[in-house]
């Protein structure tokens, strides 16, 4: 699957995107964030408070209970500030 990080998430995690296999036992967007948090201090800091984050799967905004499947494009970002 493809993972994308935007705005300060990108800065804290240290990269804009990466490709990885959907980890075993990770079924939802929320579970993916919990799993990512265990990958290092940058991830833990960036992802510590889910209320400050939003998630999109295959470019559509979804909730944390959204079911993931292999090959999905998952984007994690802060609330948007355009306009």
């Amino acid at each position: 699957m493809k993972l994308l990080y935007f705005a300060w998430l990108k800065t804290k995690i240290g990269k804009a995107e990466e490709t990885l296999d959907l980890p075993a036992g990770v079924a939802t967007a929320g579970a993916l964030v919990d799993w990512l948090k265990t990958r290092g201090p940058g991830f833990a800091e960036a992802l510590k408070d889910r209320r400050t984050l939003r998630v999109a799967v295959n470019r559509r905004p979804v909730g944390w209970d959204f079911a993931l499947k292999p090959g999905d494009e998952v984007a994690i970002f802060p609330p948007v500030t355009g306009g």
Partner: peptide, 9 residues
């Protein structure tokens, strides 16, 4: 668009 379009300043 201010609350839905994925832009960050």
């Amino acid at each position: 668009l201010k609350t839905k379009a994925p832009f960050w300043k």
